[in-house]
């Protein structure tokens, strides 16, 4: 159940970042969040690079979910 909750949240956040519904997140999608989140462009770029495991410049739902799951389970299991 915990994993299901995590997957739902990851999907929800992915859609927040991928507002156009392309199926991937590009760096400019991440930079667009600058208006909505209290993070600087530099921080958002760091987030993107941290999530972009293969470094191809696009975040897939799998990469996003992997990054989110690390955060999610580190929060729920201190």
């Amino acid at each position: 159940p915990c994993q299901l909750a995590m997957l739902r949240k990851a999907q929800e956040f992915f859609q927040t970042c991928d507002a156009e519904g392309k199926g991937f997140i590009a760096k400019r999608d991440m930079q667009r969040l600058h208006k909505e989140l209290p993070l600087s462009l530099e921080e958002l770029e760091d987030v993107f690079d941290a999530l972009d495991a293969d470094g191809n410049g696009f975040l897939t739902p799998e990469e996003f979910t992997t990054g989110f799951s690390h955060f999610f389970f580190s929060q729920s299991n201190p």
Binding site: L39, D46, V47, D49, A50, H70
Partner: peptide
């Protein structure tokens, strides 16, 4: 160890990012 430091930093920015998204969704900072 620079690698460990980089890992900890990216963990920090990710935590910050996801917490911001959570706050945005729930409306509670």
């Amino acid at each position: 160890d620079p690698n460990m430091k980089a890992g900890a930093t990216s963990e920090g920015v990710l935590a910050n990012f996801f917490n911001s998204l959570l706050s945005k969704k729930t409306g509670t900072p």
